[in-house]
């Protein structure tokens, strides 16, 4: 587990929206991360839908879930798990907000 890293200000993420974080080290197999902001919290998931790899960052955020833009799977932001009936999971990343700054662990 790596250290906390500041990625942006909270206000850089639109409410009920998302941003994409790409790692500068950017090696093979290192996927982008999607940061989501709900009404009051921030979550981070690997930006790849367990269904067919759709970019979750482009989905519509509602409640504590995001709907994948490609075929409409719904994923829980807290766990990365797909909402039944679909089955699958997008990897979750720890995230925290302090003094309006968003920190992420990769």
């Amino acid at each position: 587990m790596s250290d906390w890293q500041a990625v942006c200000n909270l206000d850089d993420i639109p409410r009920l929206g998302s941003r994409v974080v790409r790692r500068r080290s950017g090696g093979e197999g290192e996927d982008d991360i999607a940061l989501f902001r709900t009404q009051g919290e921030v979550f981070a998931l690997k930006n790849k839908c367990p269904h067919k790899g759709g970019p979750l960052s482009e989905g519509i955020v509602h409640g504590k879930a995001v709907t994948c833009p490609l075929h409409g799977w719904k994923l829980r932001l807290e766990s990365g798990e797909a909402v039944a009936p679909d089955v699958g999971c997008a990897r979750r990343h720890p995230v925290k907000v302090e003094n309006g700054v968003v920190y992420l662990q990769f």
Binding site: P14, R15, L16, G17, K52, G53, G54, P55, E58, G59, I60, V61, P69, L70
Partner: peptide, 19 residues
């Protein structure tokens, strides 16, 4: 409300299967 628009309308282009 941009956050209530499907991605295509939000960014004014059609999303493809590879993003």
């Amino acid at each position: 409300d941009s956050q209530s628009r499907f991605i295509n309308e939000r960014v004014h282009a059609n999303i493809q299967k590879d993003g």
